[in-house]
Amino acid sequence: MNKKRKDKILKALVYLFLSVYALFQLVPFYLRLVFSLQPKDFVPVLGEVYWWPEGLHFENYVNAWKMSNLGTGYLNSFIYVTIFTAVSAFIAILVGYVIAKKKFKGRKLIFIVLLATFMVPSEVLLIPNYIIVRDLGWLNTLTALIVPGLVNVVGIFLAKQFLETLPDSLLEAAVIDGASEMGIFFKIVLPMSSPVIATYVILVYTQMWNDYLWPLIVANRQEVFTVQLSLMTFQTNFQNGYDLILESAALILTLAPMVLIFLLFQKKFVEGISMTGLK
């Protein structure tokens, strides 16, 4: 009897702790959301925390969008991240398929060599890749943002693991039907890989959207700024109270699509991270 009661109290404490922690994480962002909706002439009183805005001034979002070049950033990020994710997913499935299903000399070697990529952090290759991109004349283009990372070893690894479970009989039947090699890939392998593609796309899309270091190095002109770079340059013109309000709006605008994607595809996220983490 006593133990049961103790368990109940313990469980209540667990709920309490988890709830408090969740709130603790949410509050700073909530306070920025409140800021982003304050009126233009709002002057915060020193030492005061504002839990509720004085009216809902959504025009701050329009102003922030215009001022911070966020529109260009959004568009550039959308274009380059979408192309990057699509092409790198295609490459990952292609390479994963060849390594998983084709029998040829050098298969093991290629896989091991590709895996070695894991050991070299991308930070080590910043300098040489910058020089390569510069020599190719790609600085300040979206190409520079897309091409260098296209062969994603994590993706190849995921695809290989997944495609090894694909029954050989399916592929053999297609060969008997007279399908070409690329025909088999497009008509059978690619559609069958949709679960792993979905996981990969969500992980990589959010990761690329949030990336700032590589764009910072190869994109110096406003026309090719990504959304993160737009927010970064926003930080510099901090002057009066309204700047904090606009900055809050820009911050929410940068963050919102990612939180939305997370809420919509939570299951895929959890799956993807557990999958890449546990392997």
């Binding site: 959207w209 949030n210 700032y212 927010l231 940068t254 963050l255 990612m258 994607i261």
Partner: peptide, 8 residues
């Protein structure tokens, strides 16, 4: 909060 970028 993992979804929050470095810049944000």
């Amino acid at each position: 909060p993992i979804m929050v970028s470095q810049v944000v």
